[in-house]
Design a protein around this nucleic acid. Structure first.
Lengths: 142, 142
DNA sequence: CCAATAATGTTCAACTATGAACAATAAAGT
DNA sequence: ACTTTATTGTTCATAGTTGAACATTATTGG
């Protein structure tokens, strides 16, 4: 199953090649599409990657004029992220490609099953994130 | 969903830390456990990674005496892979840990659903692998 | 107001995985 | 037999990701 994810990433990468973006870029674009104006930190948290990763990718996307980074006026530490018109266009096209790929993969899976899987996966994610924060401390017992 | 896989890998990595092995090593061990005597090439194909990756990991595991590499007598190119006693011991312990993790994740998912998911994932894998080999050639039509 | 603590983003060294180029061996075509 | 083509494993340069250390700015506590 991990292998399936791995292969889908590779396949997605190939399908996205002609737009000159890769899966990590798409992840960023999609999240900005839905949550415009978030900070780099918030974005990194949603994507489950390190802040440093954002510091590598975002400036490069800014140079390609897919996104824009504007400093927050109330907190001079944070940079808020916005899509440019070009960025929005590319995002929509890329999402179309991604959706087509996913549909093709799940074409012979019942709809309810997909939803059930999604629900479980989200539960798994929150479960693991929670565990990450409580390494090994029962705290009250013993 | 890709994120869930990512997190499970991280969680598995932490759970495996005290054995001083990482998920890629476990993948190798489990496959040797089930298919003892396969070549590096076959192993790489099963794991969906490059041959070069095997060339990096396997010698290091050989030095730690988890595996053994013996040259095939009929084909002097291939190195056949075997688990040592120590390797078998570690593999069993690591599989226990992995199984426990997976069970914990899917504890509230119905059994049939898990099986259904597995079936679909395997189909997805074979579908994508097939596509990889036929990049863009309808060949007979048009 | 000032010190201490925390949060954001950047930089850098380390690690992993990859694909291309290569040497050795095998298989196929002549 | 000999040349050509394919396969196996290795090496190396490259790209992507991470965590730690850092500078800057906020927040908290005295």
């Amino acid at each position: 199953m991990a292998r399936a994810c791995q292969l889908m990433q590779q396949s997605l990468a190939r399908a996205l090649a002609h737009l000159d973006i890769k899966p990590p870029h798409l992840d960023i674009l999609v999240n900005l599409f839905r949550f415009e104006g978030i900070s780099q930190q918030e974005l990194a948290r949603k994507l489950l990657v390190g802040r440093s990763n954002m510091s590598m990718l975002l400036p490069q996307m800014e140079k390609r004029e897919l996104i824009e980074r504007r400093g927050d006026k109330q907190d001079k530490r944070v940079l808020r992220l916005y899509l440019t018109e070009e960025g929005r266009r590319v995002t929509e096209e890329a999402m179309t490609i991604q959706t087509a790929l996913i549909d093709r993969m799940l074409s012979d899976a019942p709809i309810e099953e997909c939803q059930a899987i999604t629900v479980h996966m989200e539960r798994v994610v929150s479960l693991l994130l929670q565990e990450e924060r409580e390494p090994l401390e029962p705290a009250g017992d013993q």
